[in-house]
Simulated assay, not measured.
Amino acid sequence: MAGVSGKTTTLTSAPSGTRGKRKISWDLVRSGCVTLVMLYHATFLSVFLHPELDPRTFVFPYQVGASLLLLISGYFACVTIGRGPVLRYWWGRIARLVPPFLAAVVLIFAVMRLVPVDGWFDPTGGDLAANLLMLWNWKPDDYPFIDGSHWTVPLQLMGFTVAALLFRSSWGHGRRVVVVLWAAVLIPIAQWPLRVSNPPEFYRMVVDGIGAHRWHLLVAGVAIWLWSTRRIGLAHFSALLAACMAAQALHNYSETPEGLVADWGSTVAVCIGMVVVALTAYGPDWNRVVPDWLGRRVQWFAGISYGVFLTHQTIGYIVSRKLQDAGAGPTAQTAAMVGTGVVAGWLLTRLVERPAHRALMAAYDRLRPAAPSSSSGEAA
C-alpha cells in the first residue's frame, strides 16, 4: 500500500520507538488523561447524572481523557508485543488489567451497599455478577454499570488479544497489517448510518458489544507507533489519523428528541489529544524541561493511574453527596472526589494490582519456561 516504507511493518517494538529509560513525557500524558477523566466526572457528569448535587464553580464538560487512554493502550501494545513470547505478552496484559478491575468492582459494589443514597442505583448480586463479567455493552438496558469508567476495560482486553493473534499471523506483518487498520476504521464509519437509525437489537448488540464504534482509538495508537518508528510516511499517517478523527466525530453524535446532536467540544479535544500523543511518540523526551521534583511525583501518579481510573467515579459521587448533605460546597466536593480517587487508586495498586501481576507472571513462568522470542529478527 502506498505510504508504507521499505522497513517491515509489524506489530513489534523497535529501537527508534522506545528507549531503555522510561520517558517522563509518557507519564505526563497518561497522568494528564486520568486527571481530565476525574475533572469531567467530578465537575460535569456528577451533576448531569445527579441534578440534586450543587452546580460546580468550574466545569470541564469534555469527554476526552478515557478515549486518549485507550489510544495510548493501542500504541503501547505495539511497543511491548515483541519483547518476548507473544503468549507471555498477552498473559501479562491480562494479569495487569483483570485482577484490579475485579477488585474495583467488588469494592464499589460494597460501598454502594454499605453507604446507600436514597433514589440512587442500588445494585443487586445479579448486577455485581454482570459487572464482573463486563456485560454492559452487550445489553445495557439489562446490565447497568456499577461504575461507568469501566467501559474501556473490555476494549483494552479485546485490543490486546487481537494484537496477539495478528502478531502470530501474516496479517500482523508487512502491508497486510495496514489493510487491517484501514478496515477497522472504515467499516464502522460505513455502518454508522445504520447504527443511528434504530437497527435491530441483535445488530446493535453485536456492534456495540465488540465496541466497533471505538476501534478507531486503538487504530490511532497503532498508526502513531507506525509513524514514530518510520514504518509509514507522514502522508499515509496523516490520512489514517484523519480517518480516525472522522470516526471520532461520528461517534460523538448522540440521539436526542430533537435528532442527532454532535459534541464537537469533545471531538476537537480528542483530536488535539491525538496530535499531542503523536508528537510525544515521535519527539524527544521532555525530561529537560520537567524538573526532577515534579517528575518523581508525575511518575508516582502515573504508576497508580489505572487504579485511580477504576475507583474514582461512583465512589466519588457518593462522597460528594454525603459531603453536600453535611453542608460542604461544590469546590470541597470536587476536591474530595479527586482526593478519594487518588487514595483508593493507590490502595488498589499497592494491595491488588502489583502483587497480583507479580504472582500471575511468576505462575506463568513456572508453567511455561522461557522460550526464544517469536520475533527474533525484528524486536528491539
Rank of each mutant, 00 (worst) to 15 (best):
P116Y: 02
A190D: 03
L114V: 13
Y143G: 01
Y203C: 08
W120T: 08
V117Y: 05
V185H: 12
A129Q: 14
T161C: 04
P188I: 04
L133Y: 05
D127N: 12
W182A: 09
G174A: 03
L186M: 02
Y143H: 15
G125D: 04
I146A: 01
P193M: 01
W182E: 11
L194C: 07
R168L: 14
S197V: 04
S149L: 12
D118C: 01
A163N: 02
F121K: 06
W171P: 02
L135H: 03
R176N: 05
H173T: 10
V153R: 02
R195M: 13
D141P: 14
P188H: 04
P123C: 11
P199N: 07
L114C: 13
V180H: 11
P188K: 02
D142N: 13
G172M: 06
M112T: 13
T124H: 06
E201N: 11
G125W: 02
L166F: 00
P199C: 08
H150M: 12
V196I: 15
H173F: 09
L128S: 01
Y203F: 11
L194S: 09
R175M: 03
H173Y: 00
Q191A: 13
F167G: 15
S169E: 07
V117C: 00
I187L: 14
D127C: 01
N198T: 10
D142R: 10
V179I: 07
W192F: 15
G159K: 02
P199I: 04
F121N: 01
N131W: 08
V178Q: 08
V178M: 12
D147Y: 09
L114D: 06
G148E: 14
V180I: 06
G125F: 04
H150V: 06
V179H: 13
Q191I: 11
V178P: 00
D141K: 12
L166I: 01
F160C: 10
S149E: 14
M112E: 04
